[in-house]
Amino acid sequence: MIEVENLYKSFGDLDVLEDVDLTIEDGETIAIIGRSGSGKSVLMKHLVGLLKPDKGRVLVDDIDIGAIPYEELREVRKHFGVLFQGGALFDSMTSFENIAFPLNYFTSQSDEEIRERVLECLELVRMPDVGPKKPSELSGGMRKRVALARAIALEPRYILYDEPTSGLDPETSNTIDELITQLSDELNVTSVVVTHDMHSVFAIADRAAFLHNCHMHWVGPVDDIHKKPDEILDRFVKANEYHVGDPLRATASQRGQV
């Protein structure tokens, strides 16, 4: 379980998060939503200790990760996999080497054990044959999937996704959504998805947490987003649900087929 308690964060004179509370239950998929610049990615970085709160705290399995030395934080981070928005693959490495990187860095597994785990991860993201290819040889969606294979290499308890469908075409976005759901079910992980893509939210998430004006404005089951109208949330959802640049996903979402 991850618990965010009374979290405040600012950068200089810019307040980003104010008095934010959020509990993330084991095994759930929760979407953190909000406009660009609303603090979604900043909140996500606090969950894994990449940022420290100005006030408040973040508890991961009852450990205050802002109050422990780096060596202990490093151990906590082994339980996290992170899919960064741009993938963050190493351009000089092959896909295989990218996925093997955390295994080489954090474990003492043999070369054969690492090889088997990398191939297993590539199978899980439905890309068994791309190990020899470098990121420059892959499409944007393929790079995201290789990055996702790397994120699950250490068998994490938590997977954090930062805008996983950003910049992808509708069909590829749907594939990423399917993978998020598949991995959540098959690996029994807790998934935190930072996104403004409401089509993904309705397809993959159990609950949504809506950031607005530095505060956690609304938290609840995805099914309640339309059942319990909130004017501010409703405007955000409608603006993203019917985005003219993504008509295929909008249509599929309306039919419940995304």
Results as ranks from 00 to 15, higher is better:
141 G>W: 03
127 M>A: 10
146 V>W: 05
132 P>T: 07
103 L>S: 09
139 S>P: 02
132 P>A: 11
122 L>K: 08
167 G>L: 08
67 A>D: 14
169 D>K: 09
132 P>Y: 12
155 E>T: 12
63 I>P: 00
84 F>A: 08
140 G>C: 04
92 S>H: 14
82 V>D: 06
103 L>Q: 07
73 L>D: 10
67 A>C: 10
149 A>G: 00
76 V>L: 09
110 S>P: 04
60 V>S: 01
145 R>C: 09
104 N>H: 14
64 D>R: 11
154 L>D: 04
110 S>T: 15
125 V>P: 00
136 S>H: 14
135 P>W: 11
99 I>E: 01
89 L>N: 04
99 I>C: 05
90 F>P: 03
65 I>E: 04
141 G>I: 02
117 R>T: 03
167 G>R: 12
166 S>N: 13
77 R>I: 02
70 Y>M: 14
149 A>F: 02
79 H>C: 03
128 P>K: 15
108 S>Q: 14
80 F>E: 01
94 T>Y: 13
164 P>F: 12
60 V>I: 05
145 R>Q: 10
128 P>F: 15
169 D>E: 05
92 S>F: 15
88 A>Q: 06
166 S>M: 10
118 V>W: 02
102 P>R: 11
87 G>P: 02
168 L>M: 04
121 C>E: 01
93 M>D: 03
119 L>Y: 13
105 Y>D: 13
66 G>Q: 10
132 P>K: 12
144 K>F: 03
160 L>S: 01
111 D>W: 06
91 D>S: 15
162 D>S: 09
160 L>Q: 03
102 P>L: 10
170 P>V: 03
135 P>L: 10
108 S>W: 04
102 P>D: 07
130 V>M: 07
93 M>R: 12
157 R>I: 00
130 V>D: 00
135 P>R: 12
128 P>Y: 15
127 M>R: 13
124 L>I: 09
84 F>C: 06
141 G>F: 06
150 R>T: 00
161 Y>R: 08
88 A>F: 07
98 N>I: 02
78 K>N: 09
70 Y>F: 15
147 A>C: 10
70 Y>G: 07
113 E>Q: 15
135 P>T: 09
159 I>F: 03
106 F>S: 09
60 V>L: 03
59 L>A: 08
147 A>Y: 07
149 A>H: 00
118 V>A: 04
129 D>F: 14
80 F>H: 02
98 N>H: 09
101 F>Q: 06
141 G>K: 03
82 V>G: 04
148 L>P: 01
92 S>Y: 15
149 A>P: 00
151 A>W: 01
163 E>N: 11
132 P>Q: 10
132 P>C: 12
127 M>I: 09
100 A>H: 03
103 L>D: 07
108 S>R: 15
71 E>A: 15
99 I>H: 06
75 E>R: 15
157 R>Q: 10
116 E>Q: 14
93 M>N: 05
102 P>A: 12
83 L>Q: 08
102 P>K: 11
141 G>D: 01
124 L>C: 06
97 E>S: 09
125 V>C: 01
114 I>M: 06
125 V>F: 08
83 L>K: 06
125 V>H: 02
91 D>P: 13
71 E>P: 02
159 I>N: 01
167 G>I: 06
140 G>H: 09
125 V>L: 05
114 I>E: 04
166 S>I: 09
91 D>K: 15
135 P>K: 12
61 D>G: 07
61 D>P: 00
170 P>Y: 09
79 H>W: 04
63 I>V: 14
66 G>N: 12
94 T>I: 08
